[in-house]
Design a binder for these strands. Structure first.
Lengths: 341, 341
DNA sequence: CGTTAGCACTCAAATCGGTCGAGTGCTAAT
DNA sequence: ATTAGCACTCGACCGATTTGAGTGCTAACG
């Protein structure tokens, strides 16, 4: 257990380092108006904090910087969440006012304003269709051999993909099939579509037309892989403004990782609900072992929809970012909940 | 007009510099097996070439590097286009075999393989709907006040957007409207849709239902801004591997520019057909004044569809990239032409 | 006994002078 | 016209020195 003074000194060091990106010395802390001890006293405490693993020294004659463990303690016990800046709050409010209608765009726009407000990189995992249901299914023939399958969700989200039409299927058959599917599948959650397709539709279908198994394959193609959420990225280059990343080689790995959508998906998929803070090596991916990732989930009526996240250096403005994500995720939850009804 | 020897020396310097990224001296050129002159002779020629503005000297005691003008001369007169490497050709062939069906994905995948083959950044401006025609229009009500408009092009390309339904319009009205629109608008090129909507549909519409002007507004909303092509980007971080961009500040501007889709659109929109090479300051955007951009358009039956491009340092492997873009753009044109019929 | 002043010590970063060598331009010989 | 020779230039590199911020330890102080 840390003493009150140790906590205060640790806080001061983390705050200072977050601001300046330079090792913090005992002198500069003792000069703060809220600190009444001499540099020597601070030094003693700093030595203790280092022994506890909360601080580190880049080299003997430098000041201290927080260790991963130090940041962790700071985030868990010391942080005081200042509210959201009035200007940021206004930005977000106008965002919701404006984007109520076009929400496909809303998610990517959320990423944009997040990165602008924080000057870090923002990553948003789009509204999953996982818990949404099918509203309408359509199959539009383009020519004799191929067609576009269009899938509309109850949320207004639309997906489409090209499929090839099995031989021996006529236009009238297709209409029958589409009608049958809309009849049987409307209202079914996406993640159950494939199962229901087999259990309910297959039998019925065989009565109408031949080539049943080919059609089934086509229909499966139409709906599979559509449940994948999308990843939106913004401000990827903000990392370049951070002094600890002025070396190109360090940055390369991070930016490469950000270009790989599947990696990001994987990273975000294993996250629990609520606000999560992953500091440095706490992250699963080695590429961002020098970064911190803060994430918040949003949902509608208790159903998880997606995740918004901020990626920055370990020396991140934790307080500000956590407040912001908290605010935005709650508002997004509210917005989507309203849409659901 | 340059002498044969000057042309040979310029070629040698550009080739060497492209390979090594270091100023080329007279000695290293004279050592090449295909050069039979002494360093002193080469030096004299180099001085002349510098006077003509084709070469530059970073400082007095360094070798020469090509100037913008030098690269330009090289690209216009000296370059010899080696064919495409067998491995690259195979990559592209398998790409076409595999991606014939899903071509929404095809364009982004083309960007990916381009950046992988070249180790530069690839930018692809997706198949424009500008010259494509409407295949089918659909309006799916979500609730009483909003609906999803779905637009299918003859290419199989699908766009959708949310619209709000004017008051006093019932389900049956909507069906009538959709039928009318499909009747009148099918086969019309996208860029004429709005005009035809006013000239052909407006009158007819007023006979069916009231609130005609509100509906017109809604329909306009449904189809406008859908003609925008999409930008696909791949290998943005490849620029970081270039020695001339090991300084973060230089790279920041470029990567920032790449994140701004509208800027890229604008950049690509003003490009003429065929293969274009823009070297350094020849580029309109200041952010890429240290880069070269090579672009090639692809089309179908003479109608421009999109542009594929490679962005790299001015010290780019022009020969290789031009061959590659030429090959790929022709194949894409072929592929899309086959699709058209 | 906790706190603090004083001091010797450490070490990265900046500064400086010197050397090295790749490359040039010019001149004179071939 | 070509080339060998040579003096010259200038960035890159190297090592030595200085500087200064910051520490740890000890002894003095209230």
């Amino acid at each position: 257990m840390l003493s009150e003074r140790q906590r205060m000194i640790l806080t001061a060091i983390v705050d200072d380092y977050i601001r300046s990106a330079e090792p913090v010395g005992s002198r500069s802390i003792s000069k703060r108006s809220d600190v009444l001890f001499s540099p020597a006293t601070i030094r003693n405490e700093m030595a203790d904090l280092e022994e506890l693993g909360l601080l580190e020294q880049p080299h003997t004659s430098a000041g201290r910087i927080p260790s991963i463990k130090g940041y962790r303690y700071y985030v868990d016990h010391l942080i005081r969440l200042g509210g959201v800046k009035e200007q940021d709050a206004r930005t977000m409010r106008s965002f919701f006012a404006e984007k109520m209608m076009h929400w496909e765009g809303a998610v990517s726009h959320a990423a944009t304003i997040l990165s602008q407000m924080t000057n870090y990189t923002s990553i948003v995992l789009g509204p999953e269709m996982f818990h949404t249901t099918l509203k309408h299914f359509q199959l539009l023939p383009l020519n004799e051999t191929s067609a576009v399958a269009i899938i509309v969700a109850n949320t207004g989200h639309v997906e489409h993909r090209n499929v090839s039409i099995p031989e021996g299927i006529g236009m009238d058959d297709i209409q029958k099939i589409v009608n049958l599917l809309n009849d049987k599948l409307t209202g079914i959650p996406f993640f159950r579509l494939k199962a229901v397709l087999h259990s309910e539709v297959a039998n019925e279908l065989s009565r109408y037309v031949d080539h049943c198994e080919h059609i089934m394959t086509m229909l499966e193609q139409s709906i599979e892989e559509e449940t994948e959420p999308k990843v939106y990225l913004s401000g990827a280059t903000n990392i370049l403004t951070q002094p600890e990343f002025k070396d190109v080689d360090k940055v390369k790995g991070i930016l490469d990782m950000l270009e790989e959508t599947p990696k990001l998906m994987q990273l975000f998929h294993s996250l629990p609900e609520g606000i999560q803070v992953r500091i440095g090596t706490e992250n699963a991916l080695e590429a961002i072992n020098q970064c911190s990732l803060i994430t918040a989930t949003f949902s509608a009526d208790g159903q998880a929809l997606g995740t918004i996240g901020i990626l920055g250096p370990t020396r991140m403005e934790y307080g500000k970012v956590i407040s912001l994500l908290n605010y935005l995720s709650k508002d997004m939850t509210q917005m989507y909940s309203r849409w659901y009804k």
